[in-house]
């Protein structure tokens, strides 16, 4: 049972990363209210795991719990249709200028939509890498996959996002 020392230790570790926790949950479950539930539950879980906390990177530890909780919720719900993987076939043509695609507000809105449309396992990698600045090793630990898988998922996610952007820009 968690006692006060556990609770204060947990608060010291987790609360500084609350915004990151919520942001990750929000990107994964794609719904603000559901993201709140996920973070609430993740924090309760975290409090019960705190005695086994040994990792050197507290943010990665917090995000791992949030990620696991979010995927549990998503598995239960399965209410959002996923974009089929063969979208990945639409690879970008590097001859066309990719630099302009994300420069304006409209481009960023489209980019956010494209991220939301990524398959879950690609979305989590790209959000952890680009928005939360996690290392490959941390992402591997959070997602529970080998390092090579992280690299190939990141590559696929990026190709799909660039493909979506260039589709918008004839």
């Amino acid at each position: 049972m968690a006692d006060t020392d556990d609770a204060s230790r947990f608060a010291r570790i987790a609360l500084p990363h609350l915004d990151a926790a919520f942001s990750l949950a929000r990107w994964l479950v794609r719904d603000a209210a559901l993201a709140e539930d996920v973070v609430q539950e993740a924090m309760l879980r975290g409090l019960t795991y705190i005695r086994s906390y040994r990792e050197e990177n507290p943010k990665a530890w917090v995000l791992r719990i949030v990620r696991t909780t979010a995927f549990d919720h998503m598995a239960q719900q399965r209410r959002v249709a996923e974009v089929p993987l063969d979208h990945a076939a639409e690879l970008p043509d590097p001859q066309r200028s990719p630099e302009a695609a994300f420069a304006d507000a409209e481009g960023r809105t489209a980019l956010a939509r494209a991220v939301a449309a990524l398959p879950d396992e690609l979305r989590e990698c790209i959000v952890l890498r680009e928005l939360e600045d996690m290392s490959y090793r941390d992402i591997a630990r959070i997602a529970g996959v080998p390092l090579g898988t992280v690299m190939s998922r990141l590559w696929r996610a990026r190709q799909m996002l660039r493909g979506a952007a260039l589709e918008r820009q004839p």
Partner: peptide, 30 residues
Amino acid sequence: ALSEGLRALPRHAAPAALRAALTRQAAMPP
């Protein structure tokens, strides 16, 4: 270019009510 675009995406900060609830939870374990 893609990284620059992604890093410019709006962040979702934790809602105040959630922060308050979790602060309370942490301060007063069951």
